[in-house]
Amino acid sequence: MDNTNEKLGVGLLYNASLPEYLEHNIEQVDYIEIIPDMFWSDEGRNAYPRFVDLPQWRHQLNWMAKQVPLVAHNIGMSLGTLNYFDKGYIQFMKEMNESYRFRWHSDHLSFIKLPTKGPHDHNAGIAIPVPYDKDYLAMLREKISFITEQIELPFLIENNVYFVEYPDQDYSETDFINQLVSTNDQANILLDIHNLYANSVNHKLKARQYIDELRMDKVVEMHIAGGNEMGGMYMDSHAGPCPDEVWELLDYAVSKAPNLRGITFEFHESYFPLLRFDGLNKQIEMAKAIWNKYTLQPYYHELA
């Protein structure tokens, strides 16, 4: 089956609190997004086999794959790291895709791993945004080309949440992302609405202007989430339900994204007691209302 332009609808980012919810509410979600790194243990570059299945997790993954389409959201490519590209990791992702037929996959516009001489890379602990400079643009284009050549799927780059700003960058964020996806048909955008909202709160960024500047025809997926305040800044902590401002921004963004294929609600598993089954269903219903408002309208298809 050719899934190239299949519109999925509204999904959830899988976490460890979800098995019971999904068992009883699988019909609520149109797809499930997984972080592939959760389902195996990386034993290090020189180990054989390097990636070892975690059986309980894989059992859950296999069950989900039988129920709904899956989408992969990576956290381990560390695309922004200079002089580093873990092709063994990409190869394993290719094998995972052959098993699970992801509809698309994605990673972040940042670096988190730094190479070491040991079997494991150093993990910076947080995803650090890349400077929006010409040499980073060239490096990222090359890596994304390799990924899309190896794994024949749309590959999405997610916009960052950031807490510090680099002075004197060559491009604005929207210009950088637009240029990154302009030369590769399979390179697309994952627009994280909550990251955008957090940046607008913390850095006075104009969120609607950002959406107006972005290549919205390249946006395939959107993320929505909740957050909270820490140390005088608004955090992308995935802390339960989405704030009103995120719903408003989502409505605005979806209206301008003719090739959108999915909206994913993310929450951290520690906030499941706050949401519970009803709270999760409410978030999904609200996202579906926006999804249906635009994807069911004839003019939306004309835009596409």
Binding site: A124, G125, I126, I128, P131, Y162, F163, V164, E165, Y166, P167, D168, N202, M230, G231, G232, M233, M235
Partner: peptide, 27 residues
């Protein structure tokens, strides 16, 4: 020099302490 200027700037931004806190939380 450009990288030193960038680090000098981020070290003095409020968000740097958030980055340090997030690192500790994730570890």
């Amino acid at each position: 020099e450009k990288e030193k200027t960038r680090l000098r700037s981020v070290l003095r931004q409020k968000g740097m302490s958030i980055c340090c806190s997030l690192y500790r939380m994730n570890r």
